[in-house]
Nucleic acid binder design. Structure first.
Length: 564
RNA sequence: CAGGAUGUAGCUUAGCUUGGUAAAGUGCUUGGUUCGGGACCAAGAGAGCGCGGGUUCGAAUCCCGCCAUCCUGACCA
């Protein structure tokens, strides 16, 4: 591509509506532009990168025996009603009506449509297995879009779905996708970890996520110092290492704690530590008030809590609901005498003579013991934290931030049963189809790579993702020899099927170098004063390393760069 | 959804407290000098200050409403 005749611009300053280094670089490099909250334009230079991402994904999917098709994004609402997910997605779905007032949604993910597709063909056990995928736009009305392309409301996803006649078949299909994903993210050059995760709104038997390690990642990737354990923080088990407190149980006592409605306030008022407390959180689970009772030094893990309750929506109660449940204002809730279901973290069972709210303004109880209240259920309910140990080997856990770039779900028969996707087995008996679903966010991959590969001068794309693998800078546009030789080289490359970026703009050399670095072209050829002696300069973006190359050696070098 | 902040030229921002009809850098145009690391000089084009209303002789500046963007967030009871 010749820059002299292209839509292309770069910015010298950061955009005021971008919040991360990498999204600012993508904007400054003229690759993307925010149109509205969580909605982006992908400009020509960015589209090139996205195409490279797409190419890798499609290539590996095809190599792994998947068939591509294309589904609509505009979908009748009943499709999600019949699977029960209209409700579970709730306001995360964009919903609209047509002119006849019939309800539609913009698809956030496509398990249902693929199940319908499968039902059109998969009637016999002989039809399995197969694997369908698409690269298509998804719509999700996220609460808070963030970090450029990382969390957006409209994005392109590669979603694949496998169909098998039994669980063993699903295991094979899943392993195949696992292999494809490893190859895909390796080819993108991403530094990633594979973690166990919550199955969430997708449901099913197993979920694993590919997490690109990054400080702006919204997920916490838990690893282990001693073994290969890795897991998303939201489902990581808190290993119960507390010893039973052997103290004598003391008599229950109500104490006056004026205006001390937080653990910090009460602990400083009483000269105690958070671990001497047991805190009680009032939540609203699908409209019902419930209480969670936890060690004072720990946080509630809402994923574990929702799962225990089987709740679709779990929100912290507001002041009014707290008053309704406890009779007191926020800050004085406790399990003693509380008339709503109480769910207790299992570590609380080791404690004795602890402090809790008294369900009365400005009062707490001390010397509370297990005999003083009755939990509805006891479970692991808290977030893992620094210092916790590995559930697998007992060594110390590690914590990193990750961007979820891909995921694998072993769905089992959840959707096929809901959508009546059945086949006849060898005994002429109807059986549900076993499904898996597998997603990759394409823009998110692009953003994650940008995040992992940049320096103070701009982006540093790996060869396979760069908008152009190599670029040519003509230093002096008035030097006919430079212009002629550069164009000759450019045309030669083109004839070999290699599209280089030719900067033939009437700009000073410095501007061209800066732009080439900002957009992250990995290999640069500088046609400057050396051309008179038949030489050009070859520069590597990654290291800044410069080498003089004779013009006649360029074709060989080009072949090397393009792995030919 | 809640709370906070912001909205002025393509971009980044100043001006708003103390109302008088908009400024700078960058980008863009033209001419000249430069020419291997975001050049310099000169002359220009470009916004009527998010939208709507109000107060006032007069509003980017004050008041009300709306919209948008950004930040933070169920603060741990």
């Amino acid at each position: 591509m010749k820059l002299s005749n292209s839509y292309f611009f770069t910015l010298r300053e950061n955009a005021k509506d971008e919040d991360s280094v990498s999204s600012n670089l993508l904007v400054r490099a003229g690759m993307i532009k925010k149109l509205a909250n969580g909605i982006y334009m992908i400009l020509p230079m960015g589209k090139k990168v996205l195409e490279k991402v797409e190419y890798i994904v499609r290539d590996e999917m095809d190599k792994h025996g998947c068939q591509e098709l294309l589904m609509p994004a505009l979908i009748p609402e009943d499709v999600y009603v019949s699977s029960g997910r209209r409700e579970s997605f709730g306001s995360n779905m964009f919903a609209l009506k047509d002119r006849y007032n019939k309800p539609y949604v913009l698809g956030p993910t496509h398990e249902e449509l693929f199940a319908i597709t499968a039902a059109m063909d998969g009637k016999s056990w002989k039809d399995f297995p197969y694997n369908l995928y698409q690269i298509q736009t998804k719509y999700r009305d996220e609460t808070r879009p963030r970090y450029g392309l990382i969390r957006v409301r409209e994005f392109i996803m590669k979603d694949a779905y496998t169909f098998d006649k039994d669980e063993a078949g699903l295991d094979v299909a899943y392993a195949n996708m696992y292999d494809a994903y490893n190859k895909i993210f390796d080819r993108m050059g991403l530094n990633y970890k594979i973690v166990r995760a919550d199955t969430g709104v997708m449901g099913g038997l197993l979920s694993e996520e590919y997490q690109a390690i990054s400080s702006i990642g919204e997920d916490i990737v838990v690893g282990c110092e001693g073994c290969d354990f890795s897991s998303n923080e939201e489902i990581t088990e808190v290993v119960d290492t507390l010893q039973d407190d052997t103290a004598q149980e003391l008599p229950l006592e109500k104490i006056y704690t004026p205006n001390a409605g937080t653990i910090e306030a009460v602990s400083s008022f009483l000269g105690k530590e958070p671990k001497d407390f047991v805190k009680t959180l009032i939540y609203c689970a699908d409209g019902k008030l419930v209480a969670f009772v936890l060690p004072g030094e720990r946080e509630l893990n809402e994923t574990k809590a929702s799962k225990l309750l089987g709740a679709l929506e779990l929100t912290l109660a507001d002041a009014e609901q707290v008053k309704e449940a406890t009779g007191a204002r926020i800050g004085f809730a406790g399990p003693v005498g509380l008339n709503i279901p109480i769910y207790m973290d299992r570590q609380v069972a080791h404690k004795k003579n602890f402090i809790v709210g008294a369900n009365e303004d400005d009062h707490h109880y001390k010397n509370v013991n297990l005999k003083d209240f009755t939990p509805t259920a006891v479970a692991d309910l808290t977030e893992v934290m620094e210092g916790d140990i590995c559930p697998k080997c007992g060594q110390k856990l590690t914590f990193e931030h990750g961007i979820e770039v891909g995921n694998l779900f072993k769905l089992g028969t959840k959707y096929s049963q809901a959508m009546n996707l059945l086949y006849l087995d060898q005994n002429n008996k109807l059986e549900p189809v076993w499904m898996g679903s597998y997603g990759i966010g394409l823009e998110r991959c692009m953003a994650a790579v940008a995040d992992q590969y940049h320096d103070e001068n701009g982006l540093m794309w790996p060869d396979d993702l760069a908008p152009f693998r190599a670029g040519i800078v003509i230093v002096n546009m008035k030097d006919e020899q430079q212009v002629e030789q550069a164009n000759k080289f450019y045309e030669y490359a083109k004839s070999q099927g290699m599209d280089l970026l030719l900067d033939d703009r009437n700009e000073r050399a410095g501007v061209k170098f800066k732009d080439m670095e900002l957009i992250g072209i990995p290999h640069r050829f500088t046609f400057g004063k050396g051309v008179a002696q038949g030489k050009v300069e070859y520069v590597l973006r990654k290291t800044g390393e410069k080498v003089e190359v004779a013009i006649e050696d360029l074709p060989a070098l080009l072949n090397k760069i393009y792995n030919r």
